[in-house]
Design a protein around this nucleic acid. Structure first.
Lengths: 192, 192
DNA sequence: TGCTATCTACCTATCAGTAGGAAGGTTATG
DNA sequence: CATAACCTTCCTACTGATAGGTAGATAGCA
């Protein structure tokens, strides 16, 4: 079922884990080279510059995220469950350390010194995610599943901030369980 | 009143703004050198290694923060106002771009690749801040100013995550006003 | 034949860090 | 008080390592 990954995809996989660990300036072509056993120059064949590599990475990430969120809408009817699945996804990622941080949240912190082609894509991801959360929250409110104290857009912003902040806290304290602890508290206030 | 800053302090000032902009790997001795008009080697005189420089920076930051939070307790009696002053401080910093991000929150994101002497200090700051927020929240709850749905420690964790997450959002969207928008929504749920 | 992927070998710029010395101020000693 | 010794701060000049990136060749595949 799972096709063998191409070299380009392997490069992006490694780059993603390196960025999540140390940000844009926290990895080099040499790191990727060492990780997948290919020469530095060969990576430049696939991605001529570092900015292009990370831009491609964010594009892939955005597409995966969008696909995931949309399929969530089809697979799970209830907005409350959609939200829960989203949060469980991150909880699992953080717990098994497979992806303990959102790559776009990481890059957002470095926004001021990112190449423009990367920065614009990170901004776009935040827009997309905020829009998805907004639609889930307002659908849930209509079905009387959520109790919103503010406009859905505001609640969505707040929830998104909590999710990314909780990732930060979990990492700062070195405690994966802290993520869901924070988020559960947050969501409890939302749920009827 | 305000004494002229020593070279060491100027170095830390610049380093702090550079870290806030781009993280631990986002600045170099050459950057500091250019910014304050001193040779690279002279910076090594004050701070032999980069790790020591950043460790000293976090120490200074922690001390300033602790002093600020403690004096807040003396100057303002009400826990509700103490919390409001803390949040206003960050709102002002972000609005005038003087310090649009907490240096420890920035470093927390890079935790996995920080030198241990830096990482431990960042962890300590998070502990201190969480403890301060916990004490403010529980004092406020006793005085019937706050309505806490969870234990004070949990609410404090949640609030801290929201503050740092809101910083991230404000930066991602390039909208300084977003910080206080998110935080106000959050605090409204807390306040009676 | 041409295209794709990889290689070796190399480039220039920058990284953190060091060696050693010049200038000026402070302190200890006669 | 004079001066020698020392200390602090900054400098020029350098090091080895690594950064991102390039040139050009090779091998296999369509």
């Amino acid at each position: 079922m799972k096709s063998i990954p191409s070299t380009s995809e392997k490069i992006l996989d490694i780059a993603q884990s390196l960025i999540v660990a140390g940000g844009y300036n926290g990895f080099s072509y040499a790191d990727i080279s060492a990780a997948i056993g290919i020469r530095k120059a060969s990576i430049h064949h696939h991605f001529p510059t570092k900015a292009e590599l990370v831009a491609a990475l964010v594009d892939r990430y955005r597409q995966q995220a969008e696909t995931g969120l949309n399929s969530l809408r089809e697979l799970v009817a209830s907005p409350a469950e959609q939200l829960q699945f989203y949060l469980n996804y991150w909880d699992t990622c953080i717990r098994d350390a497979s992806q303990p941080f959102c790559v776009c949240a990481m890059l957002a912190g470095e926004m001021q010194m990112l190449p423009e082609e990367v920065a614009s894509r990170v901004r776009a991801h935040f827009q997309t995610l905020a829009a998805w959360l907004t639609s889930v929250l307002s659908a849930g409110a209509e079905q009387d599943l959520f109790r919103l104290n503010r406009r859905p857009e505001e609640e969505a912003q707040m929830l998104m901030a909590s999710v990314h902040g909780a990732m930060l806290s979990a990492r700062a304290f070195g405690d994966p369980g802290l993520f869901i602890a924070i988020i559960t508290t947050q969501v409890a206030k939302l749920t009827k």
